[in-house]
Computed example of a mutant assay.
Amino acid sequence: MSEVVQTFIRHCLNIPIMITSWFVFFFSTQSGFFWSSALAIGVYIVSNFTIKKIQQKRIMKKHQMTLSEYFHIQQQLKEANKKIKALNSQYLKVRSISSFKQLFEMNRLAKRIISIVKSNPKKFYQAENFFYAHLDSAVELTSKYTLLVSQPVKNKDMKLALQDTRDTLESISTVMEEDLHSVLASDVELLKMELDFAKLSVKQSEKPLYLKGESEDERKVIEYK
Rank of each mutant, 00 (worst) to 15 (best):
K122I: 15
I73M: 07
V94R: 00
S89D: 08
K78W: 04
Y91E: 09
I84E: 08
Q74H: 09
R95V: 00
S115F: 08
F100M: 14
N120S: 06
K82A: 09
N81V: 06
K122H: 10
N120E: 10
K93Q: 08
Q74N: 13
I116H: 12
S115Q: 09
K118Q: 15
N81E: 14
K111T: 11
Q75R: 10
S98L: 13
Q75I: 03
H72L: 12
R95E: 01
K83Y: 03
R108H: 13
N88E: 11
L103N: 00
S119E: 15
F71P: 00
I84V: 15
I116T: 14
R108W: 11
N88Y: 07
V117Q: 01
E79W: 05
K85P: 02
R108K: 15
K83D: 05
F100S: 12
K123D: 05
M106T: 11
I73W: 03
R108S: 14
L92I: 09
S99M: 08
M106V: 12
L77F: 06
V94P: 00
I114S: 01
L109H: 12
E105A: 05
N120M: 04
N88T: 04
I84Y: 06
A80K: 05
A86D: 10
Q90L: 13
Q74A: 03
K82R: 08
F104E: 14
R112A: 12
K93E: 04
H72F: 08
A80H: 02
L87E: 06
Y91Q: 13
N120F: 01
V94T: 06
N88I: 03
K85C: 04
Q76N: 09
I84P: 02
Q75N: 12
K93C: 02
S99D: 08
N88Q: 09
F100K: 12
S96N: 00
I114H: 01
L109D: 10
H72D: 06
L109S: 11
E79H: 05
H72S: 06
K93S: 06
Q76E: 13
H72M: 09
N88P: 02
I114C: 05
F100R: 06
V117W: 01
K123E: 08
L77N: 08
E79I: 12
R95C: 00
L77Y: 06
Q90T: 12
K82T: 08
K93M: 07
L92Q: 10
V94D: 01
A110T: 11
K123A: 04
R108D: 12
Q76L: 10
Y70T: 07
Q74S: 11
I116M: 13
E69Y: 07
Y91D: 03
F104C: 12
E69N: 13
K93H: 06
E69M: 13
N107R: 11
K111S: 13
L92R: 10
L103E: 00
Y91K: 13
K123P: 00
V117P: 01
I73Y: 02
K83I: 09
A80T: 03
L87S: 10
M106Q: 15
S98K: 10
L77P: 04
F71Y: 09
M106C: 15
P121I: 10
Q90G: 02
L87C: 07
N81M: 05
N81H: 05
R112Q: 15
I113H: 05
K118A: 11
K82P: 00
Y70L: 07
Q74M: 13
A80I: 04
N120C: 06
F104Y: 14
K118H: 12
A86Q: 14
K83T: 04
R108N: 13
